[in-house]
Nucleic acid binder design. Structure first.
Lengths: 363, 363
DNA sequence: TTAAACATGTTTATCGTTAAACAGACACGA
DNA sequence: TCGTGTCTGTTTAACGATAAACATGTTTAA
């Protein structure tokens, strides 16, 4: 057994078709339906693809036969003739790059939305940028997919949209391609700044005044976007932001220490808003270590409304992305893009919503 | 169509619509390669699919031309002629049905393994059994996929393999189809019982004697399988099991309460092994509530080595499934199955491994 | 009244590849 | 010497659908 077999181009790995066993239960074809009804195959094709083209009577007869035979059009034949595989490509990330499971949930919604429009989802695993571009190019040129949905979770992923633009491979970004001229891309994103504003407003309503931001290192636009939401909301309430920011990477452990620093100050914050559930859970830990009860003594909010936010104790108030809506818009944009590749790119920015749990219970 | 778009941004300022639509950069075909080399298309086909069929000289010339033109075979045409879409189907679950992210990780590995064999992965979202069977049948009859990889996480999913067997749709199960004659199915599974034995042995080595099992309600075979591992290991060490089992559903909250009951006994267990990280995290909570330090005062182990086990404090000792290996075997079985559908089904049972963290640090 | 437009269905020509059969050159054993 | 493989490449015929053009009868517009 050789698992490292690198398959090059089309290498069907020279398997020889040994057993002549089954008649491979042949599926009905369009011709069979046509014959049964006494019409041409083109008429059957119309019945399925442009029903308006036929008279109600014929349409009914054809559909009846389709139903009786259980006919389904062969996708390969259709793709070949129409030059569209009716599928989109989406990258899978290893678990540690999809902490809250947001990508997995998005993929779920994307698959559902795509299916409603007759599109399939081809998912591929890639470790590195090089591997991804290779897979994308390969897949696209093989006519396995029409287009791609990409994400730009980290600043490392920024070259990808450029690559796709250059190769003229159609794509929609879930998230904004920060750093590129954004109006050149088709994208759907959730307004992170607005999300953090909601978190701050919520805190203020609960009576908090000293609200710190336990954020990410400034990197691509994502970190800045979320931070700016906190900044703006604080400003709009006339609250001070100086010295109220601590930044670090996105992991529980460093977040815990960083939150600890905040809480050990002479006048510690009473609220901590964070750009991710991971960071927020670190903050929760720091509170608990100090005997502070999250929610009563210190308010904490996260981002993504991941499973972690739900199962942690106390439950973590978090900002939920409208993934289903985002996926539907993504597919809509994709269809527009494929229909008229040269038209002006569309963009959609969605508002997330706050999910309140114990970590910000009224004081 | 309005998906509740909060904001729909237009693009930047009016750049002129000058660019004339491209001729849809037509991909090179086999005929072009053939012409360039001065051979027939069949020869090019051989070069890619059965290189041994050609003389080294011709092969070299063809591959050179393929390289120069950047030719890639059109998958739709290939699928049509060879009657194999070279793709497998895999179901996506909503986030709350894939708590540890195990399925997501498995899908990642599966995609990678499939790709090495020239297969793609078509992923679909389904809410219910009915929806799934419908999608499966549709997809299969459309010749979009050759076969499916299914899982049977809960006992609700048991009818699915039966459905597939009846329709003669090729499939491999990840996990065992408990309740069916297992030798009728092709499956790859991880030996949960062996995993729990390892957990118990580890505890015993640390000096624990009263090791409780905080398990799942007896349902399908999964729960019984894991429980039997604990049972067997306890027996082999001559340790008592009576009264040392508490069972409940797979969520943190009930697990916390159940673990609390155990810990509040007159002679509480010093070790608690669990069939999932979710349950184990509940046990961790119960300890912490009682001022017991997990690892020092009470040993706790989970299952799945999910992200949660890593980020929780203290780190949770857990049982890791060899997902990459499992995926590779799955693909291997799939190829065997597709090559000779009538041969005797193969099965693979893999051994998981224990990942030790703070929750079972030496006393 | 007449031509143009519409409605409805058919015919023909591919889409790009591989399966199957065929064909010439060469090797080899009887 | 001849028949019989083997090696290498070609030719022909699909695979199952849709695009494009065509062919009718029927409306509609001028």
């Amino acid at each position: 057994m050789d698992f490292n077999a690198k398959t090059s181009l089309g290498a069907g790995s020279g398997r020889d078709e040994g057993t002549r066993s089954k008649p491979r239960s042949s599926r009905p074809t369009m011709a069979m339906v046509a014959e049964r009804v006494g019409v041409s195959t083109q008429t059957v094709s119309f019945a399925l693809s442009s029903p308006g083209r036929l008279s109600p009577t014929t349409l009914r007869k054809v559909l009846k036969a389709v139903d009786e035979l259980g006919y389904r059009p062969n996708q390969a034949a259709r793709s070949l003739r129409s030059r569209s595989p009716q599928a989109l490509g989406f990258r899978l990330y290893p678990a540690d790059r999809d902490v809250g499971g947001v990508m997995a949930s998005y993929l779920y919604e994307l698959s559902a939305a795509a299916r409603k429009e007759g599109y399939g989802v081809f998912s591929y695993a890639a470790e590195t940028y090089e591997e991804e571009t290779q897979i994308i190019e390969e897949t696209f040129r093989r006519n396995t997919v029409d287009c791609f949905v990409i994400t730009c979770p980290s600043s490392d992923d920024l070259p990808l949209p450029l690559f796709l633009l250059e190769r003229q491979i159609p794509f929609v970004v879930f998230g904004r391609p920060w750093g590129l001229p954004m109006s050149d891309c088709w994208w759907v994103d959730v307004d992170g700044a607005a999300g953090l504003e909601q978190a701050v407003n919520h805190m203020v309503e609960l009576g908090h005044r000293r609200i710190a931001y336990l954020g990410w290192e400034k990197s691509a636009g994502l970190a800045e976007d979320r931070e700016s939401g906190w900044q703006r909301a604080m400003g709009s309430h006339g609250l001070p932001t100086r010295g109220m920011i601590v930044r670090g990477p996105d992991d529980v452990e460093t977040a815990r220490r960083a939150a600890g620093e905040l809480l050990d100050r002479k006048t510690p914050p009473t609220g901590i808003v964070c750009p991710s559930d991971t960071v927020a859970i670190g903050a929760l830990r720091a509170c608990q270590e100090r005997g502070l009860e999250p929610g009563r003594d210190v308010g904490i909010t996260g981002y993504d409304d991941s499973l972690g936010a739900r199962v942690v104790t106390p439950g973590l108030t978090s900002i939920a992305q409208p993934l289903e809506t985002a996926a539907k818009h993504t597919v809509r944009l994709l269809l527009d893009l494929l229909n008229s590749p040269d038209s002006k790119p569309e963009q959609v920015l969605l508002r997330p919503s706050l999910v309140v749990r114990e970590s910000t219970m009224p004081r």
